[in-house]
Design a protein around this nucleic acid. Structure first.
Lengths: 107, 107
DNA sequence: TATTAGTTCTACACCATAGAACTAATAATT
DNA sequence: AATTATTAGTTCTATGGTGTAGAACTAATA
């Protein structure tokens, strides 16, 4: 299994953390805060599209909300395969970083 | 500063860990063991080339050794910029993974 | 001349990233 | 009430860069 690219990893983790409230705008906000960097709109939506095509996330449209501009949102949720990919990635990360200063390997 | 791609991260960490003995073949071996996956020759050397172009590593040729096929090796060493990039990456990794089960954030 | 350790080369599909354009809702204006 | 402005949100698309494979090449000893 190929691993996820870094943007895919970052976006997928954001979805995992956001749970039920994961849609384009909240994901982007979360990612920008976590990485402390500007992310363009495309830098979020393109990986989202690819994650969905690969089966790591699934999306559905909500009802519009009754606020100005409150159009229907496209919510994302992580799939079983997505969870597995995260576990796999976690293992690889721990393996490659183990021994580096400031990294606690929890065994 | 853009982050390193994943192959670049993996290869750079391998160089860091290998220290004085980092050259193409040992790097490849180390990376394959750490990730438990097959890596083609190009999958190692191309990122190496790019890391050098970006100033994260530096390379030099050794004297040939006196063994069959023992031609001169191209050793790699991590630069100051490379070390900084690793520190930056470590921070990003900790930020995006914090809160995920099985991750110890050492604060 | 054969064999071996090691590196260079290169091709191509896929990915990263930016941001303009589009959509569909409510609010303001006449 | 009809029209226009504003807003939240998503879709689209272009382009340069990256990921990955492995064949070809090189330079040493057997």
């Amino acid at each position: 299994m190929k691993y996820l690219s870094r943007p895919e990893e970052i976006v997928l983790l954001a979805i995992w953390k956001l749970g039920k409230s994961a849609y384009g705008v909240t994901i982007r906000k979360h990612v920008q805060e976590a990485t402390n960097k500007y992310w363009s709109i495309g830098a979020i939506y393109v990986p989202l599209e690819r994650l969905e095509r690969k089966g790591f996330v699934h999306s559905y449209s909500s009802e519009p909300t009754a606020e100005r501009g409150g159009r229907s949102k496209r919510y994302f949720e992580i799939t079983e395969d997505g969870l597995e990919a995260l576990e796999e990635l976690k293992k690889v990360n721990q393996a490659i970083w183990s021994g580096y200063p400031g990294i606690v390997s929890d065994k």
